[in-house]
């Protein structure tokens, strides 16, 4: 069952292409993330789905119904804004009840839904506060509660954790994932943080310069990146070229050996990075102007010296073509 279907949508701003033609179907209950660097068009795509921007071309379907020309207030989905956009003159409770009030939901049902949303976002203690009396994390919860109180078919989230510090972001990520599971609502999530995308998503759309680089599950994207951009944007990667082809090998698939003759390439250890569960060796190759990063697991107790001559090799099965 397709909840959202984008058919060749594209967006131009004053003649400039911001989103190249994009087709995408999103399943009911799916957690889909749009991932890409700042300025690549993520917000623009969300705003087209929400109805704040009209696609220059193409169509948008929500639950089988064409919504391309429907105004934002008539689309059964909600957007959590990047800077929350809470109503400053309303309390937490009034903010959350706003959508229900606008749709003239019966008061008893309003109360029920607001309480449910408050409970799910752990805001029950703060109902009478105004937004300016809340911390960033609490404001974020209100923004989410205000959206889910409407029981939308789809929730759009635009870098919802972008303004929060790392610690808080980590704990809210877990909460968000749990919330999505228990609600069963389709989430379209926007972020520029690849780790966040990997952790939360069922599928990731990697974007660059208004174009889709790759669509796939976190695993597919990590293990078989299709493009150079995808290979280097998600996790660490080593890019080699031979015979005019580019291929990537993940650091954990690189083997470092002292027997130089047995390896396919030779180099010098340039740095040793200790990260607790992994050791990383940075090796400067002799014949190519590049560094290779190799991850050694914690069971590896060989000691390495900076400046030491080593050989690096890998199993050809671990080579992933990323272009030519």
């Amino acid at each position: 069952m397709h909840m959202i279907e984008l058919v060749q949508i594209e967006k131009h701003f004053s003649g400039q292409v911001v989103v190249h033609p994009l087709s995408l179907t999103i399943k009911e209950g799916e957690f889909l993330t749009l991932l890409g660097p700042s300025g690549c068009g993520k917000t623009t795509i969300l705003r087209m789905i929400a109805g704040f921007e009209q696609p220059t071309d193409g169509d948008i379907f929500l639950d089988g119904q064409k919504v391309t020309n429907l105004s934002p207030n008539r689309r059964d989905l909600n957007l959590v804004f990047q800077h929350y956009a809470l109503f400053p003159h309303m309390t937490v409770e009034e903010n959350i009840a706003f959508g229900l009030k606008m749709k003239k939901t019966p008061p008893s049902q309003q109360k029920e839904r607001v309480e449910e949303a408050l409970k799910m976002t752990q805001l029950t203690q703060l109902t009478k506060r105004y937004p300016h009396e809340l911390s960033g994390g609490q404001q974020q919860r209100v923004a989410i509660a205000r959206a889910i109180a409407n029981k939308p078919k789809v929730l759009l989230l635009d870098e919802p954790l972008g303004a929060l510090d790392l610690q808080l972001r980590k704990s809210l990520q877990t909460e968000l994932k749990q919330l999505q599971r228990s609600l069963g609502i389709t989430f379209i999530y926007v972020t520029h943080d690849q780790e966040e995308a990997m952790m939360l998503s069922d599928r990731i759309v990697i974007m660059n310069n208004g174009q889709v680089e790759q669509i796939g599950t976190p695993r597919e994207i990590y293990e078989t990146p299709r493009t150079l951009f995808a290979a280097t944007f998600i996790g660490e990667n080593n890019i080699f070229s031979s015979d005019g082809r580019l291929f990537a090998v993940r650091p954990e698939n690189i083997r470092v050996v002292r027997e130089i003759n047995k390896a396919s390439r030779k180099g010098t250890v340039q740095d040793i990075v200790y990260l607790g569960n992994v050791h990383k060796l940075i090796v400067q190759l002799d014949d190519e102007p590049m560094n290779v990063t190799a991850a050694l697991d914690f069971a590896d107790d060989r000691t390495w010296q900076i400046g030491e001559k080593v050989g690096v090799s890998w199993n050809p099965l671990h080579e992933v073509m990323v272009g030519s």
């Binding site: 704040f52 207030n73 957007l79 804004f81 956009a85 109503f87 003159h89 606008m102 205000r146 959206a147």
Partner: peptide, 25 residues
């Protein structure tokens, strides 16, 4: 513009957006 967009997103018509968000602001 964001507060008004948020109101619209939550289902408010143009008049409701004006009455409950723009005007109080």
């Amino acid at each position: 513009k964001q507060l008004e967009e948020a109101a619209q997103d939550l289902g408010a018509s143009s008049w409701q957006t004006f009455r409950y968000v723009t005007l109080p602001q």
